[in-house]
Amino acid sequence: MTAQRLPAILLLAGLLGLAGCMRYQQAPLYQLDSGDIRVPSAEQGIAVLLGPVAIADYLQREALLQRQADGSLTAADDARWAGSLAADLDQQLLRQLASRLDSQRLVLAPATAGFVPQVRLGLSITRLDSGPQRPAVLEAQWRLAGADGKLLDGRLVHLEEGHNGGIVDQVRAQSLVVQQLVEQLAVAVETHGTPAPQAPAPTRKPAPIKPAPPAAPRIPVVEPMRDESEVFRF
């Protein structure tokens, strides 16, 4: 009896496994939205080395995590990221920042040979998530340094964006906080990375020539003449 039921049990298990795989494969895939960006038209622009970009370990996966009311994280059953979220963030930051600065001269660290940056922008993203009842939250820290490595500016960032609870709107809200972060980075680069125009040096007028002081009056010298009488000639 047991032997007769074994093939049926194996068949049922196979069908359930196949259904599970089909469900996973049919889950919608999502990517962050870049917003209204454009490819920079000119190759000239400020040279920025973006990175290193450190992203929290829990974000380096395809699972679309949901922040629950108690603060815990669970993977969404019916949605996932289209690839690694960390890799998507790298490209989003690079493309959005290039568009905002209108510069083709942006490179992800490590820099390629021959690339000389004007500024170096380091970034650490420690949180990016949302949940059915929790807003989209991005927490990060960025540091802007000059070509010589001297720190020019830096900030701790906490950004929030509300949504209606659905997955689609959560992804929209997460995309918006990333765009807001890029806006802050672009303002910092424009403020500290672009040298201020030098004011022309004032023209110095030549010093007026002082008239020479009048010569002292010449006093005639009395020369005695000796002959038969003392005569003084002036």
Rank of each mutant, 00 (worst) to 15 (best):
G154P: 07
R67A: 13
Q92H: 13
G83M: 07
D77I: 09
G51H: 02
P135S: 09
A75C: 03
A87P: 00
A54T: 12
H158Y: 13
A140D: 01
L106G: 05
D78N: 15
A87C: 00
L123R: 01
I167R: 12
R95W: 08
A113E: 12
E160L: 08
S72T: 14
A109K: 04
E139H: 10
Q170P: 00
A109Y: 14
A63D: 15
T74H: 12
T126F: 01
Q91T: 13
L121F: 05
A140V: 08
D90P: 00
L59F: 05
R134V: 15
I167M: 13
Q96G: 12
R172K: 11
T112M: 13
P52G: 09
S175N: 07
L101P: 06
R95M: 14
A98W: 02
Q104E: 12
A56M: 04
P52D: 09
V171M: 06
G165N: 07
L97G: 03
V119R: 09
R105W: 06
H158F: 13
V107S: 06
V107R: 06
R127T: 09
D70H: 10
R127V: 04
A87I: 05
L159S: 10
G154E: 12
L64F: 08
Q92N: 12
D57H: 09
L123N: 03
I125D: 05
Y58I: 09
L97Q: 02
L50W: 02
D102Q: 13
L144Q: 09
F115Y: 10
L89T: 03
N164G: 12
Q174V: 01
A113K: 07
G122A: 15
Q133W: 09
L156K: 12
G122K: 11
L97P: 01
V53H: 02
